[in-house]
Design a protein around this nucleic acid. Structure first.
Lengths: 122, 122
DNA sequence: CGGTATCCTAGTAGATACTG
DNA sequence: CAGTATCTACTAGGATACCG
């Protein structure tokens, strides 16, 4: 496991890579309350950033695939017509929820200050 | 506070934007033990990701500026020759350290699994 | 020592159109 | 409904060289 050795020295870098992508964290967060369908996730992401830009299917699809590869979420295809696909957190994904909670918590306390807004809202 | 209202609905998105950039989290983490000089931060970042690529001054400079703008770190220029500049965490930055700790902690437990490596190490 | 200035490349996200 | 295909715009990051 040569690759593992390199990464083990910095789990933060691995985390960064895992959640890179504009919506990954929010998708996991949205899934914490239970399984959701593709379209539900999509509309759920409409609220949040600024409410203006909608996520395109291409991007959402990619993020979902990446999250699946990371082992955070699981895809369940019901193979019916019309199609129905559900995404839900894996055990690993569930274990990650508290981390996002910590992030949210901190963000709510510190990211409403002027300095943060200047940077974050641009 | 119109801008604030938009962001308040999703602190996670604001967080994502704040820490976007390959080294920001690690810089903050490196600074948790006290002030560090520009060059020290740079060499400190050499270890970690994979040990191969060194951060370029241009990138490090940008990340430091962004972190300063976010209010996480503080720049202290001693105005001497040869130049000496120290960076250190602000109060806000210090409050953020436990969040990174949570991330590290989770990463150490879950990012050494095969699935994670396939994604993170590529 | 602690940066800037240029240039370049690879990847990420958005728009749009189409399909099983 | 849940995606894929194509194409384009933007930008983060790296290489290199130079400056106060």
């Amino acid at each position: 496991m040569a690759k593992a050795k390199m990464l083990r020295s910095c789990p933060v870098a691995a985390f960064q890579k895992m959640i890179s992508g504009k919506y990954k964290l929010r998708i996991v967060w949205d899934l914490k309350d239970g399984p959701r369908r593709y379209g539900e996730i999509r509309s759920g992401l409409l609220r949040g950033t600024d409410g203006s830009s909608e996520i395109t299917p291409r991007v959402l699809s990619r993020e979902l695939k990446a999250l699946t590869l990371s082992g955070l979420i699981d895809r369940k295809d019901y193979a019916v017509v019309p199609p129905k696909v559900e995404y839900r957190l894996t055990r690993k994904g569930k274990s990650f929820v508290p981390v996002i909670a910590a992030i949210r918590d901190w963000g709510e306390r510190h990211l409403s200050e002027p300095a943060a807004l200047a940077e974050a809202a641009e």
